[in-house]
Design a protein around this nucleic acid. Structure first.
Length: 469
RNA sequence: GGUAGUAUAGCCAAGUGGUAAGGCAACGGUCUGCAAAACCGUCAUCGCCGGUUCGACUCCGGUUACUACCUCCA
């Protein structure tokens, strides 16, 4: 039984998919006008981890996400750089794929772009107009928020309050056009031939921000989907408006479980584009040599909690991950001289911790409790590796479990296989011989030499071993 | 102003009506020719003030601080 915190009800609810064994989920992707920042990465990782856990639990997950590839920011960027809107979108969509690869984020089952569903968007908007949920004003089409019963409940916003706030904020021109200040655009007029636009029944224009997600979720999934995810800031207005559009359109419930990830903060302050205090993943990866540590940090914090990002927290995450890697390596090496068979005590403990992991993750993806079970396995691996007799089967099972559980977080703890070059191999063997003949001066010198080449040599009761620094 | 969230050791962070998981760092010890790694051990009374209770960090009331959302934003 998996429990999921549903933003709509603000409660943990027992998760039940519409179709047994299958999950349809939609996650809001980035606007591709720049490299994604750590906050975007966190969102992608949070839902990738959710997806991986559901898959581990045997679900077939249909994961749909989008790229918003046409909006004001992209248009501005295109004009600044003197290139087309699509060139901007393509560049940063490619960068997204490139940068998320080292973070081990699984590709979406379907990754759609807004501009790929323009006909569907226009048809959707037309229907809203026909049904009286939307109206046209000089080429713009607005959604009548008030006509949709229950508008704002996702974010628990009070309509009257919103109205008061919206009235004071919007520029007069746009407010004047709308019937009501809280109405929002589903289609935006664009008659300037230098700016990208599509012909529509209301003249040339482009989609409003929220409409693409409603359209894609319906097109690639269904009228009612199991899970819709995104950053907590999207609850209002984006998801609020999606609900209004979709439910007005289909008459069906749009989403069963709304999941929202918490923010990444910098120095305890929100990281945002307007504050300019964001770090792009692109830059971070360029200056950091352990992408798995980034994944570890972002995946092992419960998805709804804020993460305070700093070099120090990343370093701490890396230290934790190193402990897991080392434990894995310790037992892996020990297994080279293990005997066949298995130990019931070990097997049972491995099983127990795996269950603890599942219990934790079942509880709204409580990653911190899950990782605690992983550390129990690490300690078990280390103590087992030090025992006099190690059985192949149990040792292997322990390692496989450790690897599998970390893979749910998208963290690969098995270092890629490398080998010593012939010279290093010679130094390594010479050192073993020097130690055998108690020539410690020489053996220490050889160890230093290898160390200088990034090869760490360690002695164990089973002989010396090495790994990369 | 409205609506939410958070406050647990030097740091990160679980948790629950019955005397505080896990990790990082630190310190002590074991192991080691020396290291490294590992292992063992030490390290908090849970923002503040009241209340309920046999008993609260956990429930209730109040209070303080920080953060977020209220049409740029993951």
């Amino acid at each position: 039984m998996i429990q999921v915190f549903n933003t709509l009800t603000r409660e943990k609810e027992v998760f039940k998919s519409i179709t047994p064994g299958k999950i349809n989920m939609y996650v809001c992707g980035p606007t591709v006008y720049n490299y994604i920042h750590i906050g975007n990465a966190r969102s992608a990782i949070a839902f990738d981890t959710v997806r991986r856990y559901f898959e581990y639990r045997g679900y077939d997950v249909n994961y749909v996400s989008n790229f918003t590839d046409v909006d004001d920011k992209i248009i501005n960027r295109a004009q600044e750089e003197g290139i087309s809107e699509m060139a901007v979108a393509n560049k940063y969509a490619d960068a997204f794929h490139e940068d998320t690869l080292p973070l081990n984020i699984k590709p979406a089952t379907v990754r759609s772009r807004a501009t790929e569903v323009i006909p569907e968007i226009i048809a959707f908007v037309q229907d809203l107009v026909n049904e009286g949920y939307a109206y046209e004003v000089e080429g713009d089409v607005y959604f009548r928020a008030k006509k949709f019963k229950g508008y704002g409940i996702l974010a628990h916003q009070d309509l009257a309050e919103m109205e008061a706030n919206a009235a004071g904020r919007l520029d007069d021109e746009e407010t004047a056009r709308k019937e009501d200040p809280i109405d929002f655009a589903v289609w935006k007029s664009q008659e300037n031939p230098d700016v990208i636009s599509w012909p529509s029944p209301w003249g040339n224009g482009r989609p409003g921000w929220h409409i693409e997600c409603s359209v894609m979720a319906q097109k690639y999934l269904s009228d009612t989907i199991d899970i819709h995810g995104g950053g907590i800031d999207l609850a209002f207005p984006h998801h609020t408006n999606e609900i209004a559009q979709s439910e007005a359109h289909t008459g069906q419930r749009f989403v069963n479980y709304w999941m929202h990830n918490g923010f990444v903060n910098v120095d305890n302050e929100k990281m945002s584009k307007s504050l300019g205090n964001f770090t792009t993943l692109h830059d971070l990866l360029a200056n950091y040599d352990d992408p798995m540590a980034i994944r570890y940090l972002l995946a092992t914090t419960q998805y709804r909690r804020p993460i305070n990002y700093a070099e120090e927290t990343l370093a701490q995450a890396r230290a934790e991950l190193d402990r897991i890697r080392t434990g894995y390596r310790n037992l892996e090496f020990r297994l080279t001289s293990a005997i066949s068979g298995h130990d019931n005590v070990i097997d049972q403990e491995v099983n127990r911790q795996q269950q603890a992991f599942e219990t934790a993750m079942d509880d709204d993806f409580n990653a911190q409790n899950a990782i605690a079970a992983v550390f129990e396995l690490v300690t078990l691996a280390n103590t087992y590796a030090e025992s006099d007799t190690v059985k192949q089967s149990s040792g292997n099972q322990l390692l496989e479990t450790l690897q599998m559980l970390m893979q749910i977080f998208g963290v690969d703890i098995v270092e890629t296989q490398t080998s010593l070059n012939p010279e290093q191999k010679q130094l390594f063997d010479d050192r073993a011989n020097a130690r055998k003949s108690h020539d410690f001066q020489k053996s220490d010198q050889l160890r230093d030499e290898l160390n200088a080449q990034g090869i760490i040599v360690e002695d164990t009761p089973q002989g010396q071993r090495w790994h990369k620094a």
